[in-house]
């Protein structure tokens, strides 16, 4: 099970707390976790399901490698942080 935590800047716009979801890749995990809230999904990913340019995602402490297809593998227990980049302000 992966736990996804969101920057408080995002929580200002969407009422979200930590989510949990299963999946083999980041695309699977985020897809499952955000499926109930398409608006929240649109804050993190664009309509092509790419990570937004000024959003950063850390997986187990490291920035993800594949921002276009989110193919980074996710282990059975994972910590994912969805953060606001310092760029884009």
């Amino acid at each position: 099970m992966a736990t996804i935590r969101f920057t408080t800047h995002l929580m200002r716009h969407r009422p979200v707390r930590a989510l949990q979801a299963d999946g083999a890749t980041l695309a699977d995990v985020l897809g499952a976790a955000l499926s109930d809230d398409p608006l929240l999904r649109s804050y993190v990913l664009d309509e092509q399901d790419r990570v937004r340019k000024h959003v950063t995602i850390y997986l187990d402490g490291q920035p993800i490698r594949d921002r276009l297809r989110l193919s980074d593998p996710v282990g059975p227990v994972a910590e994912i942080y969805v953060m606001q980049a310092l760029s884009g302000g």
């Binding site: 649109s42 937004r52 000024h54």
Partner: peptide, 23 residues
């Protein structure tokens, strides 16, 4: 939004309350 993309909101009470719409 600089980080979270373009969003759309509507108010039906002249700006007292807002609802977010899908962009």
């Amino acid at each position: 939004h600089g980080h979270f993309g373009c969003k759309l909101h509507r108010s039906d009470d002249r700006g007292a309350t807002w609802v977010e719409l899908p962009a």
